[in-house]
Simulated scan of single mutants.
Amino acid sequence: MSQTIRVLLADDSPTMLKMYLGLLAMAPEIQIVGTAKDGEEALLLARSLHPDVITLDVRMPRMDGIEASQRIMAEAPSRILVISGAVDAEMSFRALQAGALEVMPKPRAGKEGLVLFGTRLVQVIRSMADVPLAQNRTLASAPTPAAPLKGGRVDGFGLVAATGGPPALCMVLSLLPPNLPYPIFIAQHVSEGFTTGFCQWLSAASSLRLEVAQSGTRPHRGHVYLPPDGHQMQVLPTGELRVEPVQGTPAMLGDTLLSSLARVYGNRAGGAVLTGMGSDGAAGLVAIRRAGGLTFVQTPESCVVPGMPEAALRGGGTDVVLSLEQMAAALRSFSGAVSQSTLPPN
């Protein structure tokens, strides 16, 4: 795309729009091509202006951010960034399901919070501008798992995702039974303040029990664990979970999680890397594969951003590529060879 990033801003608060304009004026490569006071106006301007990136609030009159995301992606595709408060987390993730790429929280009160928000806003818009547009990306395809993944035994399975991950994870979890004989661990890059809402949103679509993990928790079969805001998660040799503040930039939540599964579960570990930008999870899949565990990635053509699966394939972490439906079918086919000392019953 061109060096200039053309941005459309949509929020029903004139104060918020003025603030966004001021913050983005500090980035010379970002050009504000229009502002909208509601989703309906955002749709009209998207049709006429064809911006590279659109920021949307989720609560707006006439047309909210969820419907606006869906209509924009159908009629005038663009890269959509949802900016909302944590109180609207469920609506924000529904907007992601409708086609938005990312969610970030509105700024905190005070000058320091505003400065941090402005820096983050510019970073996110820059990174989103590099994401290829796809108007009608299909998440699902054939429901039959690939032959190499029929059967198998796992004590724990890790799913790693970033951009585009929430809808992909939602689809996979919605297709799994409540009596899954092993736990699932998730490393999804989520904006701070949205983990609890993300967990609740996934819970509404899945029959599995979702939990925000705490250090010392002993994982249960049929449960899904996510780390708290700003934390990474791993399984310890004792069988307990450990959560700790994210280390390093960029955060490699997936590598931390998957590598721990390889160390603890060995050839009964499993892991998959889904849609996302960068290479998180690639090294973790290599660790699981070397331990003799099961590894695969989401089909790159079904990803919002194929960077992470492609990095995992290049790195030799797997040679098995599955659609999301195939992935869920594979997960259903695994039995749990569970040690009671590692994984207590419900």
Rank of each mutant, 00 (worst) to 15 (best):
H231G: 00
S48V: 09
F117P: 01
A68R: 09
V212N: 00
M16C: 00
M128E: 14
R242Y: 10
M308N: 08
R59E: 13
A330G: 06
L285G: 03
G248Q: 02
A68Q: 09
Y225W: 02
A25F: 06
D155R: 14
D155N: 12
G316H: 04
G315S: 06
P51W: 11
L285Y: 03
V115C: 03
M1L: 13
K37T: 14
G278R: 10
R221E: 06
V58H: 07
L121C: 06
F185G: 01
P181W: 03
G276F: 08
F93H: 10
V122C: 02
R218V: 10
V212K: 00
V124E: 07
K106N: 04
L294P: 00
G65R: 11
L159N: 06
S92N: 11
L173K: 05
G158P: 03
L45H: 11
E112A: 11
A283C: 10
P219T: 03
L236Y: 07
P14G: 00
R6H: 15
G99R: 12
S260A: 01
D319R: 12
F185W: 01
L274W: 07
T249D: 13
G276R: 08
Q3D: 15
V304Y: 12
G293A: 01
M233T: 00
V154M: 04
L331G: 09
Q340I: 15
V321W: 07
M60R: 04
V131H: 09
P107N: 03
Q247K: 08
F198L: 15
W201M: 10
H231Q: 05
